[in-house]
Simulated scan of single mutants.
Amino acid sequence: MSSKTKIVVLRMKELIYTGIFIAMGILLIILLICMFAPKNKTTKSSSEAAAYTPGVYTSALSLGNQAVDVEVVVNSDSIKSVRLVNLEESVAAMYPLMAPSMENLAKQVIENQGISGISYDEGSQYTSMALTEAIQRALDKARIRE
């Protein structure tokens, strides 16, 4: 058997051009993958920051035969203020824990940007729970439905 040795001569210029074209091809493939790959859109949970329709929202709270409104002001991504409106002096006298409980809850709601993680004073637990339910109803009105 005769084997003939073949000698292949490669020029350095051809190797450099080939390397450059391979690198450009790999770069092009990576660029196309990055451009057309599906993006993972993460949605924020309601405890972080819910999407709201900006505005002023109210929820009625019935106290005997009187009605008191809980007003929640929101912008597109945060709760700006929470307060009682239409609180007459007679209602404030009949329910003396209403205003201090609302002040405490308003601070916590704005801090937490929601009603999760709210603590109640021991003496005004039931008043605070009723106010919290009214705040939640107002926030439900403000929340954008998908």
Rank of each mutant, 00 (worst) to 15 (best):
T5R: 15
T5I: 05
T5A: 15
I7N: 10
V8K: 13
L10P: 00
R11F: 13
R11G: 07
M12W: 11
E14G: 03
I16H: 14
F21T: 00
F21D: 00
I22K: 04
I22S: 14
I22Q: 01
I22V: 14
A23W: 12
A23I: 03
A23M: 04
L27P: 00
L27W: 12
L27V: 01
I29H: 07
I30P: 00
L31Y: 10
F36T: 02
A37Q: 13
A37N: 12
A37E: 06
P38W: 09
K39M: 13
N40M: 04
K41V: 14
T42M: 10
T42H: 14
T43S: 07
K44I: 01
S46E: 04
A49L: 06
A49W: 05
T53W: 08
T53P: 00
P54N: 05
T58G: 05
T58M: 07
L61Q: 15
L63S: 06
G64P: 09
G64N: 06
N65Q: 11
A67C: 01
V68T: 02
V68D: 02
D69T: 01
V70P: 07
V70Q: 03
V72D: 01
N75G: 04
N75L: 00
S76D: 07
D77M: 03
D77E: 03
S78T: 05
I79A: 07
I79V: 13
I79T: 03
L84K: 09
L87Q: 06
L87A: 11
E88L: 06
E88K: 13
E89V: 01
E89S: 13
E89R: 11
V91N: 07
A92E: 14
L97H: 10
M98K: 06
A99D: 09
P100I: 03
S101C: 06
S101Q: 09
E103C: 03
E103L: 04
N104Y: 10
N104S: 12
L105Q: 12
V109Y: 14
I110W: 10
I110Q: 10
I110P: 03
E111P: 01
E111A: 12
E111C: 02
N112G: 03
Q113I: 00
G114D: 04
G114W: 13
G114K: 08
I115N: 12
S116Q: 12
S116N: 12
S119Q: 11
Y120V: 00
Y120F: 15
D121M: 07
D121W: 11
G123M: 05
G123Q: 02
S124K: 03
S124W: 12
Q125S: 08
Q125T: 12
T127A: 10
T127F: 11
S128N: 04
M129L: 06
T132L: 02
E133F: 08
E133Y: 09
A134I: 00
I135C: 04
I135S: 02
Q136N: 11
